[in-house]
């Protein structure tokens, strides 16, 4: 039995350390990130971004994004519009304080990568695909979101546009 113990411990150590090496690298969101949206009028940004990022370009199977945006951090550059955006009619920040994206699969594409996952906004969960690039420790993504898909002010579909272009630039550190 003792003869088997040492090889077993060695095996566990080797497989354990190998698994640690193979697990995608964890990144921290650094200062200077930007989450901008543009629907013509309004346009603006969210300043409250948090999340966990595990990403390794050579090991996408274990890579994962879980990011949360604080709805109350919305800034359109106009105080009146900020108040409206947070109100019950639009984002309803009291009831739905965060916007969350959790990836389920990350794949390589011709121009970069794609993160498939669930976007949870205004109490509605939808599957979306976010194309992104990763260069010099900066994640960059650009995609569109239709607010009507998330039941945001559906009573006024033409008020302030319905399709918003979202531009993300997220520098990260190890």
């Amino acid at each position: 039995m003792k003869k088997l113990m040492l090889p077993l411990v060695a095996f566990l150590l080797i497989t354990g350390s190998a698994f640690t090496v193979w697990t995608a690298q964890d990144w921290k969101i650094a200062d200077g990130y930007s989450v901008k949206f543009d629907g013509g009028d309004p346009s603006g940004e969210f300043t409250g971004l948090k999340g966990t990022i595990s990403f390794d370009p050579s090991d996408l199977a274990t890579s994962k994004f879980d990011a949360t945006i604080d709805v109350a951090s919305i800034n359109t550059g106009n105080g009146m519009k900020n108040t409206h955006a947070k109100s019950e009619k639009w984002f309803d920040a009291d009831k739905y304080p965060t916007i969350q994206f959790t990836s389920s699969a990350i794949t390589k594409t011709a121009t970069g990568f794609e993160a498939k996952g669930t976007l949870n906004m205004h109490g509605v969960q939808k599957e979306i695909v976010i194309p992104f690039t990763f260069e010099n420790n900066v994640f960059k993504a650009s995609f569109t979101v239709n607010r009507l898909d998330y039941n945001i002010n559906t009573a006024e579909p033409n008020h302030g546009g319905s399709v918003f272009k979202v531009d993300l630039s997220v520098p990260v550190t190890k």
Partner: peptide, 12 residues
């Protein structure tokens, strides 16, 4: 009604 540059804090 004016929208300020996003770098300006406390637009309200």
């Amino acid at each position: 009604s004016i929208s300020l540059p996003l770098a300006v804090h406390s637009p309200e």
